[in-house]
Design a protein around this nucleic acid. Sequence first.
DNA 1: AGACCCCGATGAAACTGCTTGTTGTCGAAG
DNA 2: CTTCGACAACAAGCAGTTTCATCGGGGTCT
Lengths: 223, 223
Amino acid sequence: MKLLVVEDDTTTSTYIARGLREEGHAVDVVADGRDGLVQATTGQYDVLILDRMLPELDGLTLLKTLRGAGNATPVLLLTAMGAVDDRIDGLNAGADDYLVKPFAFGELSARVNALARRPQALEQETTLRAGDLTMDLITRRVTRAGQEIDLLPREFALLEHLLRRKGRVQTRTMLLEAVWDISFDPMTNVVETHISRLRAKVDRPFDTELIQTVRGAGYRIDA
Amino acid sequence: MKLLVVEDDTTTSTYIARGLREEGHAVDVVADGRDGLVQATTGQYDVLILDRMLPELDGLTLLKTLRGAGNATPVLLLTAMGAVDDRIDGLNAGADDYLVKPFAFGELSARVNALARRPQALEQETTLRAGDLTMDLITRRVTRAGQEIDLLPREFALLEHLLRRKGRVQTRTMLLEAVWDISFDPMTNVVETHISRLRAKVDRPFDTELIQTVRGAGYRIDA
DNA sequence: AGACCCCGATGAAACTGCTTGTTGTCGAAG
DNA sequence: CTTCGACAACAAGCAGTTTCATCGGGGTCT
């Protein structure tokens, strides 16, 4: 199993790394957040072990960035603080599990194994992603490249529908049915109108366009 | 170490109990929530292992009741569901850790030991916060920017509910269910009314607004 | 009586869908 | 190869509708 440890305290990181290697894993170690992000995005890891407090780039930010980029590698967050709030922040940021320092090595090992074993994307239900776009269905927040976008209810519904069938073309009829709940052609261009508005908020301010029109067929979202 | 297992599925409970006894712990087992509550409050346990779904009295309710009564025994929550939301609910209710079924015994053991080792009462969430707002659930005091705000009972309940799910949008229906305990639409604007009153006390006198309306969806609190 | 809460009315603001005019794309004819 | 026409998609403005905020009256419980 290939693991990445991002931890600035060398005492801790060598302790973790040695233990995991003894269990037969391939372990990479980096000491700051920026290197961590690079390494995490380029290497194919089974689990990331991430300290919350890091130089250069804080662990939570790193995690958010990673998730924002669509990376779903299981993350175990190490935190020095034990307050519930911190855990919640961690889970919200996209961590799959957390561990409060100090911890026994056996505990870390158990959790790492649990994470690797767990069928991924079991969580995902609450957040939809496409490229650098994130849509959180619970908080009802949409962000792209870290920037928050606020959408009107209909726009939100439309984007949600498109994201849920990412990559597949949705015809006007399908969209009318799903988002407007009408099964006849209203003889107007409601769909086009709303796609246009959605684009103005979601695509226009950024460099790559996520919402694509398939002429003669419909629309599709794709990274 | 003295442990209590509250679990209705006998297969699981005997599996857990046997394992823990082999490690030299004293283990009591009860099969429903009501017995669990009685046992937990009377016996002096080091850790409680609590199933989330229980007959008679649901695990989460049990936990809340226990915490409400000032009992700070570390609790490990077992949950069948893996969604982040459930974990957050669990942690909010006062759990110290959770474990998603199915799990390896070693994992359970590691966590139980970790909980017992951990200096207690470090958690005990009695205050909710959002930005410069503080809500103390014991003294029932709410302050913002150092200034005390007094709320009517319903307003207090509403704010508490929103704070407990900080960041997440709560629909009118959810609020009616949770704060008013009614599961039908009363066809009136009770919620809006109380939100309005709450805002007058909590937001209006200050510069940033914590209570946000998400048009077409509901309300959300956020710093 | 007092405190608290629900209700209905009212006005304001937000949202949506339509209309209209513009731009873009494709294919066939010149 | 270019031009033109038809059709598809887009964008902006406007107006009807829906949703929300606020207020005061009246009911209810203590």
